[in-house]
């Protein structure tokens, strides 16, 4: 095995071009487990820790450019206002030790259906900035990124440089089912973001289908229902029947399996419950901010 230690992004791309099978290692919280247990013996490990810019983020007008290796701990601490859904999801990952090392680039690299960043990214809206020495940079919409169980849209010579995530324009929530409050891989998870600016709602479902998915039919139903009743403007509560229909459609968007963590039936039901709850939480929060805004005006 060779340990490649590029000092810059350009060097890393060159190394990946020369050795497309090289395994990038950022926080190592997925890669090292596989190596320690002998599940993976790559010819080359490509260390990304020396590339300082990967651990940096930048807040623009509409989105945050999050370096691929920014650890979860930094997201929780610094980006709670801009990326509330991702910050909440980050807080549910493993333990402080893991959150000090692991980050979104690694979560996307692994592309596990249970990865906690995915539902938050799907709900917020995001693009993955991927780059290769041969073809340069491209932006992959998050909806096109997950291509199968632990598969993603990266080409063998590509690396993730950053993720561009829409800044929150309304309340966001993240909910996860597991047996403990810490150190738990999701049985299933649900992310929801209200986007008052475009009058839309977006969702993300984790661990209940071969890939992370959005519940698009549920989103369309809810967008129409909110519009029809003028709810974005009048700030009334969402009726229980609309919330329930939304929850049922979210459950229907799942394509889960039975495994050691839970049954397909349980997952479907739990996703419905989480959908209803996160909708209530975010909508009540939206109504609250509307009231305060009005009061201030």
């Amino acid at each position: 095995m060779d340990f490649l230690r590029p000092a810059s992004w350009e060097e890393a791309l060159a190394a990946k071009a020369e050795h497309p099978a090289a395994v990038p290692i950022a926080g190592g919280t997925d890669v090292m487990v596989e190596i320690n247990f002998g599940h993976r013996r790559p010819d080359h490990l490509l260390d990304l820790n020396r590339i300082g810019e990967l651990a940096e983020w930048e807040s623009g007008a509409d989105s945050v450019r999050l370096g691929a290796s920014v650890p979860y701990a930094a997201i929780m601490e610094n980006l709670r206002a801009e990326l509330p859904g991702l910050a909440l999801a980050s807080h549910t990952v493993a333990s402080p030790q893991i959150r000090n090392r692991g980050g979104v680039g690694g979560n996307l690299g692994t592309a596990s259906p249970a990865g906690d960043a995915h539902p938050a990214l799907l709900a917020a809206g995001a693009e993955v900035e991927a780059e290769s020495a041969a073809r340069g940079s491209r932006r992959i919409p998050i909806d096109d990124f997950y291509t199968g169980v632990k598969r993603n849209a990266l080409a063998p010579d590509e690396l993730i440089r950053a993720v561009h995530i829409k800044k929150a324009d309304g309340p966001q929530q993240y909910s996860k089912v597991g047996t403990r409050n810490a150190m738990v891989i999701a049985v299933c998870a649900f992310g929801l973001a209200l986007h008052p600016a475009t009058r839309t709602v977006r969702t993300g479902i984790g661990s209940a289908a071969p890939t992370p998915v959005r519940a698009k039919t549920a989103e369309e139903f809810l967008n129409a229902a909110l519009e029809e009743d003028g709810l974005w403007d009048n700030g009334e509560t969402i009726t229980p029947s609309v919330a329930q229909r939304f929850a049922d459609l979210c459950a229907a968007a799942c394509n889960p399996i039975d495994d050691v963590r839970g049954t397909a039936g349980y997952r479907r039901r739990a996703v419905g419950v989480m959908a209803r709850r996160t909708l209530t939480w975010t909508w009540e929060s939206y109504r609250g901010t509307r009231r305060t805004l009005k009061g201030a005006a």
């Binding site: 340990f3 230690r5 290692i25 926080g27 190592g28 919280t29 090292m32 402080p96 030790q97 000090n100």
Partner: peptide, 15 residues
């Protein structure tokens, strides 16, 4: 200065 699991840091990353 940052607490981490030493079992998940590749030796070369500690250089």
């Amino acid at each position: 200065g940052v607490p981490v699991c030493a079992c998940l840091v590749a030796a070369g990353q500690a250089e």
